[in-house]
Design a binder for these strands. Structure first.
Length: 209
DNA sequence: TGCCAGGCCCTCTTTAGGGCCTT
């Protein structure tokens, strides 16, 4: 049995943004951020804030997220929330479902407040595509049902989605460790997993036996 | 409701096109 580990692999922050649209390059803004910190396989901390983007969101986003313009009118400005969030994530490594989406918004919002983060991203969706090819699809909600993960039935809110992504992440680690007789799997190996072809996943892990 | 974007990934591919996933 081989241990795949490194000195900083056991703490990650799993995050999720609710936004006014799909692209910060098109003027879309974050309206809520949720995150949980996983340390040695256990959720040890949580962060959730609504944030006021300074403009109204459209009816589709209100309906999709349940976040209303009235709720955002009472929320702190994006700059204040993102400054707090930068403190929360620090230099920890980061996980998100379809991470390229959340990374674009994290980068855009932190750039506005001249803050940075030191960790790197891994994507639970890309990992799940390789580990669970039999799933009907790889939407977060589908994978939560597929793996019978804990949830309170609420979707498309930042903290709820971040928690479900965290449970998915832990389930994937546990499945890899069980299926490949590994003691632990590092963050870096999970990042590499998302870059190998689906057909090569077993071969990828056999390298460590 | 589903378009906007962008990266990944598959295939009837690579001199390309389209589906998936995120809000």
């Amino acid at each position: 049995m081989t241990k795949i580990s490194n000195s900083c692999a056991q703490t990650v922050v799993v995050l999720d943004f609710e936004t006014s649209g799909l692209s910060p390059n098109q003027g879309d803004r974050a309206i809520e951020v949720g995150a949980v910190r996983i340390e040695d396989g256990v959720i040890t901390d949580r962060f959730q804030r609504l944030m006021n983007p300074g403009r109204r969101i459209d009816g589709f986003i209100e309906s999709y997220t349940g976040i209303t313009n009235a709720m955002l009118a009472k929320a702190a400005p994006c700059a204040e929330v993102m400054d707090e969030f930068a403190d929360f994530i620090g230099d920890d490594d980061l996980v998100a479902h379809n991470a390229s989406f959340d990374q674009r918004f994290l980068d855009a919002e932190l750039k506005r407040v001249q803050r940075r983060y030191g960790g790197s991203f891994a994507c639970s969706m890309l990992a799940a595509r390789r580990l669970y090819p039999g799933a009907f699809n790889h939407k977060l909600g589908t994978l939560v049902e597929y793996k019978a993960l804990p949830n309170d039935g609420s979707f498309h809110r930042a903290l709820a989605d971040a928690e479900m992504t965290a449970y998915l992440w832990l389930a994937m680690l546990a499945d890899i460790e069980r299926d490949h007789a590994l003691e632990s799997v590092s963050f870096e190996v999970m990042q590499q997993l998302t870059k190998v072809p689906k057909a090569s996943v077993d071969k990828f892990f056999r390298r460590y036996h």
